[in-house]
Design a protein around this nucleic acid. Structure first.
Ligand SMILES: [Mn+2]
Ligand SMILES: [Mn+2]
Ligand SMILES: [Zn+2]
Ligand SMILES: [Zn+2]
Lengths: 144, 144
DNA sequence: TTATAATTAATAATGATTATTAAAAAAGAA
DNA sequence: TTCTTTTTTAATAATCATTATTAATTATAA
């Protein structure tokens, strides 16, 4: 998404288009390496020295909430442990953050696809399915 | 891995077999939902009221370091953002935590495999490849 | 313009995790 | 066993990423 598209998208979702939001979004788009809030903060501060780290956090969360950007992992708040160390696959409920194992031969057979640079040594992979679990689904259906 | 296997595995990697380690491991294995350190702490404390939360953390980290257990995501320390909100796939360097996009039609074509319960509504999925990036690889090769 | 709502900056608070340190337990030698 | 050394634990303090608060600023709209 380019700058003009971003401005339109903000209007679409009812967010005021501010200098800060444009600067943060632009800086994020300059990156291909998925920066942290602090990375963005340090860079935006070059052009805009009065910006606050809390504003960067708040802006990134706001943009993510409106699906203009995203977090690589939104499961980063608290560590979750697994009784096995073998790579396998998971179902994650985005509401209650329940994590369930998936046992699937098909997923284990994926292998390394084209599009992966040869100079990156892959050790393993995991597939994460995001969705809504049964109990969260029925909980949200109740009040309608 | 069962209790006896765990005891053997501890000896294998040179960890003393303590009551706390067994209790924490057993409790983790009772779960299918990938508990947090605090979840484990609250439960182990029923049987062993003097245990400390810091011990639970330390034990879980120690067991994970020796590959007896694992973290569902070890990329949980700081949030990383992405300029797009569309689900896609990533290469993650486990050394420097660099995150790189993969563009792969094959991965996008996986679909929902057998083994996923029908009452879980899947919204999207992402594949994460863990490995060592080129610069980390050559950095580790230098000193040999 | 003036009123109202949204956003920002600065800072304090929160909370998960880690570090520290002294006591307790385990291992090893004799 | 007993003495010595190493590992582990418990308690607590410290750290640090993130969030909440709040007053000032800016945008929107009448
Ligand atoms: Mn699992
Ligand atoms: Mn990405
Ligand atoms: Zn759920
Ligand atoms: Zn790397």
């Amino acid at each position: 998404m380019g700058r003009d598209e971003f401005i339109d998208a903000c209007k679409q979702v009812g967010l005021n288009v501010t200098y800060q939001r444009i600067a943060i979004f632009n800086k994020l788009m300059e990156h291909t390496d998925h920066p942290s809030a602090d990375d963005i903060y340090k860079e935006v501060r070059q052009d805009y020295p009065t910006i606050s780290l809390a504003t960067v956090y708040k802006t990134l969360e706001t943009l993510a909430k409106h699906d203009l950007i995203s977090k690589v992992t939104y499961l980063h708040d608290i560590a979750r442990y697994d009784g096995t160390s073998e790579a396998h696959h998971h179902l994650v409920c985005i509401k209650c953050k329940k994590i369930i194992d998936i046992d699937s031969n098909a997923l284990d057979a994926i292998g390394i696809p084209a599009g992966v640079p040869g100079n990156f040594r892959i050790l393993n992979y995991r597939v994460q399915f995001d969705g809504i679990c049964e109990s969260c689904e029925s909980a949200s259906t109740e009040q309608e």
